[in-house]
Amino acid sequence: TETAWISLVTALHLVLGLNAVLGLLLLRWQF
């Protein structure tokens, strides 16, 4: 079960990281 939790947490971190990068790019394009 630990491996499943680790994979789930890493997936969440990757998604949050991608969202942060996309958000910064969108803000930079708007201004």
Rank of each mutant, 00 (worst) to 15 (best):
A4F: 04
G23Y: 04
I6C: 03
E2N: 02
G17D: 09
T10A: 12
L24Q: 07
A4N: 01
L16N: 04
V9H: 00
S7Q: 06
N19D: 05
I6M: 07
L8F: 04
T3A: 13
I6D: 02
I6T: 08
L12H: 01
L22E: 03
T3Y: 01
I6P: 01
A20C: 13
R28C: 09
L26N: 07
V21C: 09
V15I: 07
V15W: 05
Q30Y: 15
W29Y: 15
L27C: 13
L8D: 02
L26C: 07
F31V: 12
H13V: 15
A11V: 11
W29A: 15
T10R: 09
N19C: 02
V9L: 12
S7V: 14
T3I: 11
W5A: 02
L26Q: 04
L26H: 03
L24I: 12
L12R: 06
G17R: 03
V15G: 13
L25Y: 09
L18D: 09
V15Y: 01
W29S: 15
N19E: 05
T10P: 02
T3G: 11
W29L: 15
N19S: 09
A4I: 01
T10S: 07
V9C: 00
W29D: 05
S7P: 07
A4P: 00
L27A: 05
W5K: 00
V9W: 07
L22I: 07
L22H: 00
V9D: 08
N19V: 00
H13W: 14
L14W: 03
A11W: 07
L18V: 12
W5C: 04
V21K: 05
H13A: 15
L12D: 00
L22K: 02
L18Y: 04
R28V: 11
W29C: 11
A20P: 04
T3S: 10
L26T: 08
L25M: 13
T10K: 11
L24M: 12
A4Q: 00
T3K: 09
A20G: 08
W5M: 10
L24R: 05
T10N: 11
H13R: 08
W29Q: 15
A20F: 12
L26P: 12
T3D: 03
L26W: 12
L24T: 02
N19W: 02
L16T: 06
N19A: 10
L8E: 05
V21G: 06
L12C: 03
V9A: 00
G23M: 15
L24K: 04
L27I: 11
W5D: 01
R28G: 11
L24N: 01
L12P: 01
L27G: 03
N19R: 01
L14D: 00
L12S: 01
V15H: 09
V21F: 12
L18T: 05
A4E: 14
G17W: 08
W5R: 08
G23D: 05
L12Y: 02
L22M: 13
N19H: 09
R28A: 06
L26I: 13
A4W: 11
L16V: 14
Q30C: 09
A20K: 06
G23W: 13
L27E: 03
L16K: 07
L27K: 01
G23F: 15
